[in-house]
Nucleic acid binder design. Structure first.
Length: 425
RNA sequence: GUGGGUGUCGCCUAGCGGUCUAAGGCGCCAGGUUGUGGCCCUGGAGAGCGGGGGUUCAAAUCCCCUCACCCACCCCA
């Protein structure tokens, strides 16, 4: 094995992987644009405060998963762990608040988290995300969810389940956390160690516990939905009826919470159906998002509502592969040139130029190899035609066009006619 | 961060203490005509067994450490 390898948890996307990636990316961009979302590219590094202020210093992302480094000017930079905060920073920086609201944006790029890698979890992960900024209404939430839903359908992932919840606003959450604490406290002894730890750090997470899922204390736990303010409840109700209207199936899951502090009200996740057998792939969430009113203020901007979602590209590709879904096949090689002799190479170069100019895909043959070897190579490449050019052809301004894809019939045509012949089939 | 598993040519795999200066398949390169493919045949290049250290007369084969990957937990996309 080579002594130099890609950094832990980071991997190469090889040419053979690329068609599926391109399928995901192209489909994502097409769907986003069809909802009138526009691309925004932000740097992959940001001032660390973009994330520490917004994700919450206590969050795992900030406390232990960020790649932070000092640049030569002494500033603290971070490899971005997620996209939303960076997009919001750009929104503020470029005064997008004075554009027609809401501003609809999408991004596609790598994120970095210093996690322990495992199936579906990487230190460099790609996300496709959409953000609808400047609209507090339930319609924006429903639009984002519908967009994501549409994208999964277009990709052929039609068995993902959508879970939605409302976690209210900061105050309702505080109230609910107190209630939940009081409810769980008497049962603490009987809960798992993880849950006991989370009782101190993040009570809401206990609801998500796999270990304690069947515990009576959890089954009887109060639902956050019962603690929503009237406004929160109305908002959630409206999101639901809009989803109903657009035919997006979902289930309400009062137990889902999100990892980042800036979420408010609507939150959601798309997950593949629980795998048969037992313990496969707990890294299931393919896409997740929520409303983040309040985030802008954490970044020093004016109060601005927003909602968005992010999809894990690797996990999406994993799900496509698991279902045997393949990317539309790439364009084949139209012609492989086969230069022979002393004059062939130059003639082949000129021919290749003119064929490419005509929009054809041409692989240059390698001078010096035998005709036999070159034809074998052309065949292996799956080329439709081989264009043989030796001294004789070069002198006469012709080329031997051999139709590999068929029976190998070969005919001599003038160099100038080659593009027409190849292009006509 | 915690626990478990794996690690032999580019890929897949055999070997599991001496017959291994490591074998096979795929792929790659070349040849089987002087300028003709796909099948087939022949030959060739390519690893010293993830790395390091031990044990032993002898290690790919045993032990330890380390690295990487995989799986689970935590957390998350």
């Amino acid at each position: 094995m080579a002594d130099l390898q890609a950094p832990r948890g980071m991997s190469d996307v090889l040419p053979e992987d690329e068609p599926l990636w391109r399928f995901v990316r192209d489909t994502a961009e097409r769907v986003a644009r069809s909802f009138d979302y526009r691309l925004i590219n932000t740097p992959i590094v940001e001032d660390v405060r973009v994330f520490s202020r917004t994700s919450g210093d206590e969050s795992d992302i900030v406390s232990k998963e960020m790649y932070v480094f000092e640049d030569r000017g002494g500033g603290e930079l971070a490899l971005r762990p997620e996209g939303t905060a960076a997009v919001c920073r750009a929104y503020i920086e470029h005064g997008m608040g004075s554009r027609p609201q809401p501003v609809r944006l999408y991004y596609f790029g790598p994120m970095f988290r210093y996690d322990r890698p495992q199936a579906g979890r990487y230190r460099q992960l790609w996300q496709f995300g959409v953000e609808c900024i400047g609209d507090p209404s339930p319609a924006a939430d429903a639009e984002i969810i519908e967009l994501q839903y549409t994208l999964f359908r277009e990709l052929g992932l039609d068995d993902l389940t959508l879970s939605i919840n409302s976690i209210g606003t900061a105050e309702t959450r505080r109230t609910y956390v107190d209630v939940l604490r009081r409810h769980l406290e008497p049962h603490l002894e009987g809960l798992s160690q993880d849950s006991q730890r989370r009782f101190g750090t993040n009570v809401l997470r206990i609801l998500d516990s796999k270990e304690d899922a069947g515990h009576p204390a959890l089954q009887s736990a109060p639902s956050i939905l019962d603690y929503l303010t009237d406004e929160d409840a109305q908002h959630f109700e409206a999101v639901r009826s809009l989803l109903d209207a657009s035919g997006v199936p979902y289930e309400v899951a009062p137990r889902i919470v999100r990892g980042l502090d800036y979420y408010a009200r609507t939150v959601w996740e798309f997950e593949p159906p629980a795998a048969e057998g037992s313990d496969s792939g707990q890294q299931g969430t393919v896409s997740a998002g929520g409303r983040y009113d309040g985030l802008m203020e954490l970044l020093g901007g004016p109060p601005t509502p927003g909602t968005g979602t992010a999809m894990g590209v690797e996990r999406t590709v994993l799900n496509l592969r698991a279902r045997g879904i393949e990317a539309p096949s790439a364009a084949p090689v139209d012609v492989v040139t086969i230069p022979l002799g002393g004059q062939g190479p130059a003639a082949a170069l000129r021919l290749a130029q003119s064929l490419r100019a005509a929009g054809l895909t041409v692989r240059a043959g390698i001078p010096g190899r035998s005709l036999r070897a070159q034809l074998r190579g052309a065949d292996a490449a799956g080329a439709r035609y081989a264009a043989i050019l030796g001294d004789d052809e070069a002198a006469r301004g012709v080329v031997q066009l051999k139709h590999l894809a068929r029976d190998g019939e070969q005919r001599e045509v003038a160099v100038g006619d080659a593009a027409g012949v190849v292009g006509s089939e």
